[in-house]
Design a protein around this nucleic acid. Sequence first.
RNA 1: GCCUGGUUAGCUCAACGGUAGAGCAGCUGUUUUGUAAACAGCAGGUUGGGGGUUCAAAUCCCUUACCAGGCUCCA
Length: 632
Amino acid sequence: MVKSIFYSKLNNPDKTSKIPLIFDLRIYFMHNCESHDHAELELHKIRHSLAHILAQAVLEVRPKAELGFGPAIETGFFYDFLLEEPLTSEDLKDLEKRMKKIIRSGQKFECSTKSETDAKTMLLEMGQKLKAEYAEELSSKGLELSFYQNGNFIDLCEGPHVEKSSQIADNCFVLDSIAGSYWRGDSSKQVLTRIYGLAFLNREQLDQFLTERKLAQERDHRKLGKELEIYHMDDEIGQGLPLWLPNGTVLREELETYAKEIEFQAGYVRVATPHITKENLYYRSGHLPYYKETMYSPIEIDGENYYLKPMNCPHHHKIYGSRPRSYRELPLRLAEYGTCYRYESSGALSGLLRVRALSMNDAHIYCREDQVKDEFNAVLQMHKNYYEKFRISRYWVRLSLHAADKNKFIDGEDRWQFAENIVRSCLEEVGIEFKSEAGEAAFYGPKVDFQIRNVIGREETASTNQLDFAIASRFDLKYTGEDGKEHEPFIIHRAPLGTHERFLAFLIEHFGGAFPTWMAPVQVRLVPVSEAFLGYAQEISLILHKEGFRVVLDDSSDSFSKKIRNAVTKKIPNIFVIGDNEVQNRTVTWRRYCVKDQITMPLSRIINLLKQMRSDRTMDNFADEVLPMGLE
RNA sequence: GCCUGGUUAGCUCAACGGUAGAGCAGCUGUUUUGUAAACAGCAGGUUGGGGGUUCAAAUCCCUUACCAGGCUCCA
């Protein structure tokens, strides 16, 4: 009953930001867009045809433009052009008009095939050198070269397309943005100009997408991070080096405490390691030759180079190797919220999602061969539990396997097979759906990567679990077995909560800035109806503070309504309203974030409730999380 | 790192070759309020930094730092 009062409105729009509490652009960002559903196919044809029409329009204003690729994508289409004279976002409106004109002219899309020679001759005559290059490549793979022509425009393309341009509603698309790209995605090749378009079956769907994208931008962690004073980036500190403000630090520490408790229960022990390390360690680990360009330049001291650590593994390996190990003490699980530094390319940096200073929920598990499976299973189970706890459903899991590339992956086909089989069967046993991808493994073993998309659709690896069968020998890590002989341990690298930076960026967006009571920077805001009740409010404030709650008393001279508003815009989960009635009866009136209905209860009772919510880590920012203590 | 665009008060924005302005936040008063913005006043800016063009630059040009959207990369 009370539950329904408290949560009935939670899924309604939050009046402050005008966004639903739990909002999901998933429908637009579904990974598997290969559905063969009829409408999907129609939409695909429309998008793909629009890409051609865009190219047609660009050729009208830039006749010498060379065409790159122009596919349909999840939200529309793009086309890449090699231009002598640049196009800018100001040209998009004009191009859009030209596209509409082409659409209305009702051009037919006609397919034809050509031999390699004919195709190349024609493409080169048209000045389409990039396409000619691609035609040659396709042909060398034995593929047929098909062309689609509409009006005076012809393009090498496998289709499919609409039959006539007039089948496309001329208001169902919009040119969205302009960006750079590289030919064949290779940064050593030509720089192309990419124009992105949004396209849907009709205007309503386009408008809906635009509206929802706008709402999604409202919960962008960079916006909320500023509004809720979570972190600050400062030019004088450096790119990608966030300053965690007091509110953000609460979030980090709550998350960390939670992880520490879970890891303690799971038999981990904690370690701490320095931020800088001698160069040689990274030669030993094998990282330096591969990752030098993504490490900060070394600091020279006493004739030696020291690097800021880009990962914690070598340090943990050194801890393992600090004395002889017996099979009896395995598995050894070393955990650290280690701070690392990576010189990420400046263009990749983005709020907290991609930074240069990061703290990782890292641990390394050193175990025997007969323990690998149970350990990896436990890791995946822990990972799954975290995701369920935080209600993270917008992710996909990649099983990253090796490929035949001696430069990227260490030798040993048998060992790769062994490790990959274990990882795959663990995923199956724990019941995590995954997609295998060859060539994505770490150089020392297979990985299970949890891929998330942020609220505006950018995909990142949220966390990763790896089975390493190779590094132990580089570090000469051994244990004495039951047989009295030396053996090499397997190492599991795992970071289910990824980094504070990325995970919190994701949670900020996932929760729209409204954190559960246990995490919230301010857990309770006391709002007296007028200054006459400040005394009782102060008393409550002291009690709550003594109980360890993060409580703020609003003793401003703002109007009562304004005080409520201020508390709500800060997305504080619990507001205690205090007026005459409350003073008389030693109660408080409890108003939850985003919920107007409220409940008055004795002070002692509400404190017990809060304590229980805190110790249970209730996800009270979700509609269905049940309140404790029989409030129903 | 690359391509394109951007940077005006703490925040969100206006002024687009001719005296930098508003709302919110802040501060000071008045107001003491029962559920999302009381009222008044004050203060706040060498328009990211540097250089140039011009009688005159927030506005045009160059350069640098940073930001955004992509691309590349991602142990």
